[in-house]
């Protein structure tokens, strides 16, 4: 009986990839279809004139504006600056957040003391700190990184802490009876248990890092996508605002997909 169940399982697995590829193609086609439908709707709304001419632009206008800034050397330096700040802030905040989060998860007594302050700090609107960071670091990459860091570090802290805490009750009992050492408990049980939750935090964190950087750039910066948005908005070039926003959306999707790939590569078939 077991053998039968096993062989059918294996067959299922062997048969799956091609089937899965077919399903993936279908899904991709569907997703592209939705995108085209959205563009068509956008065009219709633009032509109908229900939206104020001040802010309404056609997909074509936005596209040509994009082509212009992509070719005249405006877009790339800004893109590079924004992505660089995003990645630096994300890596720093993830490292610090995960370390602190694990520490809080391991030492509930310390967490008890700090928790009200962490929650309170996390509830503060970080955008209010942007001017402070700009005064502190000048109009620089560091100011953007600081703002993004202040947002992302909490996400990772909360997720790492939750991951450490949510070890399955049965697994806890099992390792208790095994007289597991503290070191093994941490390395072989707590840390691997926390990995899915930490990854959920990383996927959120990379997006919030981008948002933090762009926010800082909109407030004050020399170069960056946020700075472009602020500039175009100030001169009523709404096609520029929209073009940069779409660029940002694409970057966010790519970063998200990259994190998903990394997660799949690191977690493999663990399939939680």
């Amino acid at each position: 009986m077991v053998a039968a169940a096993g062989s059918s399982g294996l067959k299922g697995k062997a048969g799956r990839p091609s089937h899965r590829n077919g399903a993936r193609l279908k899904r991709l086609a569907g997703q592209i279809g939705v995108g085209i439908a959205f563009l068509a709707l956008w065009q219709l709304v633009y032509m109908s004139g229900v939206v104020k001419p001040l802010i309404s632009r056609s997909p074509g206008q936005v596209f040509w504006f994009f082509v212009q800034i992509a070719t005249d050397g405006t877009l790339l330096p800004a893109l590079y600056s924004t992505v660089e700040a995003t990645v630096v802030a994300f890596v720093l905040a993830s490292f610090v957040g995960v370390v602190i989060g694990i520490g809080l998860g391991l030492f509930p007594k310390v967490e008890e003391l700090l928790d009200p302050y962490i929650s309170a700090f996390n509830a503060m609107p970080r955008i209010a700190f942007a001017p402070v960071f700009i005064l502190l670091f000048g109009v620089s990459q560091a100011a953007k990184i600081a703002l993004a860091f202040s947002v992302v570090v909490f996400i990772l802290m909360v997720n790492a802490r939750a991951g450490i805490r949510t070890v399955d009750r049965d697994i806890r009992l099992m390792v208790t009876v095994m007289n597991i050492s503290k070191r093994d408990m941490f390395m072989k049980i707590l840390l691997p248990s926390a990995v899915p939750s930490i990854f959920a935090g990383l996927r959120l964190g990379i997006i919030y890092s981008l948002l933090g950087v762009v926010t800082s750039e909109i407030l004050a910066s020399r170069v960056g996508l946020g700075q472009l948005i602020a500039g175009y908005a100030g001169t009523f070039q709404l096609e520029g605002v929209y073009a940069v926003c779409i660029v940002l959306a694409v970057i966010a999707s790519l970063l998200n997909a990259g994190m998903a790939l990394l997660e799949r590569y690191l977690l493999g078939a663990r399939a939680l």
């Binding site: 399955d168 049965d170 697994i171 009992l173 099992m174 691997p192 990995v195 977690l267 663990r270």
Partner: peptide, 10 residues
């Protein structure tokens, strides 16, 4: 050994 297997999913 428990009623639930308590296997480590990773």
């Amino acid at each position: 050994m428990f009623a639930r297997d308590a296997l480590l999913p990773w």
